[in-house]
Each structure stands twice: as structure tokens, then as C-alpha cells.
């Protein structure tokens, strides 16, 4: 049952978006987020939405997958909407009931905040849905490599991320196994009050903890045996390479920013 947990929700595919260099996608995601905060008109939101929809279409991401990803955010979205709707001041009162009043500017603000959150999160999904976690790690490492000069252990951090990703399924499998073993001995993990259930988890976590330390020990030994001695002087089998498609992607990103600024200027 624990095995059903999906991670990083990467949907493998072979579209142009999937094949873009991870660095391009990382940088463009940042550009997209910045652009979103430059939006100053409804036309701007429409443009960002159009851009998002085209990327999703090219990458074969179905709207359903996006909505599913947005589901956990319902609470934050409702909260933001309510907060902006009822607590924005102004004289342009839309309707009033006892001490509660909603203003035009409040409505506008609520809608624009909700749009902003939806577009922001959906935009980052474009990155994680089309790029494997490993590629993201690789891209981040390359982008952050100038920090090596400041003695930031960029390579080590990215290796840590890779190893964590590699061991998550193994540890989930192990948790499943320990859970079955405890259940077979009569442990009850599913009923009872919260403190009772938390207490029942203890015999699950302790063996998991101990075995993780043993694994870490063995893995470190195995890595040493395979000549691991830090990031210094290391080469990579798979070189990241930019292609002309990446150039086009950057141009489109720039066009999006320009378009938003123009619409803002025109007030559309």
C-alpha cells in the first residue's frame, strides 16, 4: 500500500518539452515566476494562462493531471480568497450585510491572488512533470556550480539528493515489511486515539532507523570501494548539452515577459 506513493510526479515522455535541457527548464521556471509577479492587468493573466496551456499541450500534460496536483492546495486557495474578499477596504461597496461588506477592489484582488497561486503552482508542475528528479538534480548542480568557488559543496549536495531519491523506494519497501511483521504479531496501527497510534508507530520507526544507519554505513563503504573521493576531478558520463530548441525556449520566455510588460503599459 505504501508503494503507491508517487514521487516528484514525473510523467516520462518524449516531447520537445521533455527533451529540453534541465537547466533551460529550471531557468525558464524562474523567469515564469518572475513574469507572473510583473502581471498588472487582466490581459496579462490571460497571456500567462495561454503560455501555460500551450506548454501543457506540447508536453501532453492533461488538464486532469494538473487539477489533481492542485487539489492539495484547495485550503490555501479558499483561505486567500476569503481573506482578500472580506478584508479589503474601499468605498466601492458591492454588497453589505451587517458588519460584513465586500468591495469591488476586494473581489478583484481575491480573483487576482487566486489566479496568481494557480498559475504559479501549475507552472512549476510543468517542470516537475516533464523532468526526471535526477535531471533536475543534474541541472541544479550545473547551475549552482559557480558557488563551488565560495566553497559550497554543490556536488556533494546533489549526490545527497540522488541517493535520497534512490533509497526512498527501498525504505518504503522496508517499512511495508516491518509493518506486516508487526501486524502479524498483533500490533494495531490503524485504530485507537492519536497518541495510541503514535505509540504503536514506535516499534515501526526504531527498526527502520537502525536499518537505515546500517545501510548508510554499507553504502559509504561500497562508494569508497568504487573510488569515491569527493567531487574533485570527477567527470560525468552524460553531459548536459543545449540544442537549438533551448534557444527557442529562451526566446519564447523573453517574449512572454515582454508581452506582460506591454499589456501592463497599455492597461489591457
Amino acid at each position: 500500500m505504501l508503494k503507491d506513493i508517487t514521487l516528484g510526479q514525473y510523467f516520462p515522455g518524449d516531447t520537445v518539452v521533455h527533451r529540453l535541457d534541465p537547466r533551460t527548464k529550471l531557468v525558464l521556471t524562474l523567469v515564469y515566476i518572475a513574469a507572473l509577479f510583473m502581471v498588472g492587468s487582466w490581459g496579462g493573466y490571460a497571456l500567462v494562462f495561454a503560455a501555460l496551456a500551450s506548454v501543457a499541450a506540447v508536453a501532453h500534460i492533461r488538464p486532469r493531471a494538473l487539477l489533481k496536483g492542485l487539489k492539495p492546495l484547495v485550503f490555501i486557495i479558499v483561505f486567500t480568497a476569503v481573506l482578500n474578499l472580506f478584508f479589503t477596504g474601499g468605498d466601492d461597496i458591492l454588497f453589505q450585510w451587517r458588519s460584513i461588506h465586500v468591495t469591488w477592489s476586494g473581489l478583484k484582488r481575491a480573483v487576482s491572488m487566486v489566479l496568481r497561486i494557480l498559475l504559479l503552482v501549475s507552472g512549476t508542475f510543468m517542470l516537475t512533470y516533464t523532468t526526471s528528479p535526477l535531471a533536475i538534480t543534474d541541472g541544479l548542480e550545473k547551475l549552482l556550480s559557480p558557488l563551488k568557488k565560495l566553497h559550497v559543496p554543490v556536488y556533494e549536495l546533489s549526490l545527497m539528493m540522488c541517493i535520497a531519491l534512490r533509497f526512498i523506494p527501498t525504505l518504503i519497501e522496508e517499512t511495508d515489511r516491518i509493518m506486516s511483521a508487526q501486524k502479524a504479531r498483533g500490533a494495531d496501527l490503524e485504530t485507537g486515539t492519536l497518541p495510541e497510534r503514535a505509540k504503536a508507530l514506535l516499534p515501526l520507526l526504531i527498526p527502520l532507523f537502525i536499518s537505515s544507519f546500517r545501510r548508510a554505513d554499507e553504502l559509504a563503504l561500497a562508494m569508497e570501494c568504487r573510488c569515491y573521493n569527493g567531487g574533485e576531478g570527477r567527470t560525468r558520463m552524460k553531459q548536459l548539452r543545449m540544442a537549438w530548441q533551448d534557444g527557442v525556449a529562451f526566446a519564447l520566455g523573453a517574449a512572454l515577459v515582454a508581452g506582460i510588460l506591454l499589456l501592463r503599459r497599455l492597461g489591457i
Partner: peptide
């Protein structure tokens, strides 16, 4: 090579794992 294969594999794709040692040695891509 050790007893538990799970605790010797560092990457989450087979070929990337096999590349780990030569990458450490600084071999040409």
C-alpha cells in the same frame, strides 16, 4: 562486491549507477 546489493547501488537508473566509479576516476565521458 558485498552481500546486500541494495546497499551498493547509488543511482536510480542502472547505467548511471554503473557509471559511478569511472566518473569518480575522472574518465572521459
Amino acid at each position: 562486491v558485498f552481500q546486500n546489493p541494495d546497499n551498493q547501488i547509488v543511482a536510480n537508473v542502472v547505467e548511471d549507477d554503473v557509471a559511478f566509479a569511472p566518473e569518480n576516476l575522472g574518465v572521459e565521458p
